[in-house]
Computed example of a mutant assay.
Amino acid sequence: MSRVLDRFDLRILEVLKSQGDIGPVEMSAMVHLSASQCSRRMQQLRAGGYIARIAAVLDADKLGIGVNAYVLLTLRSHEPEWLDKFHRRIAAMDEVLECQALTGEADIILKVATRDLHSFNSFLTRELLTAPEVATARSSIILENLKSTTALPVRFAQ
């Protein structure tokens, strides 16, 4: 259900990407449309798939997350059954925040969050390196978070 987005739709998406829990009344003041128009447009944007989901951004420090890292994996095989097993294994790991397939030397990149270096080492050695689908792993600890966002640029929308 794709449709052409106008400037009001784009403004609504701009607001929603940083304030996902905003209601139509608050939205109307920000985009200069009536609350009923905002409500209708917000529903259409959800129904059209422009809004994949609404989620809370949790505070890592308050949750005891002290180590974030990227892990580059090389897989032993690219056979479909091996990949399916690997996908299921990664999906079950709470520590894995993101998992993407790559071109280049590594096959997979993971973004991982753990309590501390000890728990990261345990995760790496007991969960990832023992997985039969994984041939090698290289990790890099994030020292400082310079930018982290879930806000996609809406200027590319068509």
Results as ranks from 00 to 15, higher is better:
I141V: 15
L5Y: 05
L72C: 10
I65T: 06
I54H: 10
E127L: 07
Q44I: 09
M93F: 05
R88I: 04
A157H: 09
L124D: 09
L143C: 08
Y70F: 15
A56Y: 10
S148G: 15
A113I: 02
T103C: 13
D107Y: 02
S77G: 10
V71S: 11
I12R: 01
I108K: 03
A29M: 06
L83R: 02
Q44R: 09
A92T: 01
M27P: 08
E105N: 14
T125M: 07
K17N: 07
A137T: 02
L58H: 14
W82G: 05
F8A: 12
D116P: 06
E79I: 05
L58P: 00
L33V: 10
D94P: 13
L102I: 02
P80K: 12
G20P: 00
L124F: 12
V4H: 08
E26C: 07
L5E: 08
S140K: 01
E133P: 04
C99N: 11
M30I: 09
L16T: 09
S34D: 10
A55K: 03
A55N: 10
K85P: 00
Q19S: 09
L58E: 08
C99E: 13
D59H: 07
L33S: 10
I22G: 05
N121L: 09
P80D: 11
V71T: 12
L33C: 07
R11G: 09
L16A: 06
L110H: 04
Q43E: 15
D107W: 01
L73C: 08
T130W: 04
A157G: 02
L124N: 09
I65V: 12
K147M: 06
L83V: 14
A106Y: 14
L102M: 11
M42C: 05
A60V: 10
A137K: 04
G104N: 07
A60I: 03
A56R: 03
D116S: 11
T150K: 09
A29T: 00
C38M: 03
L83E: 10
R126D: 12
D94A: 14
R3D: 07
D107L: 03
F8G: 00
S18W: 03
N145Q: 12
G23P: 02
V31W: 01
I142T: 15
K111R: 13
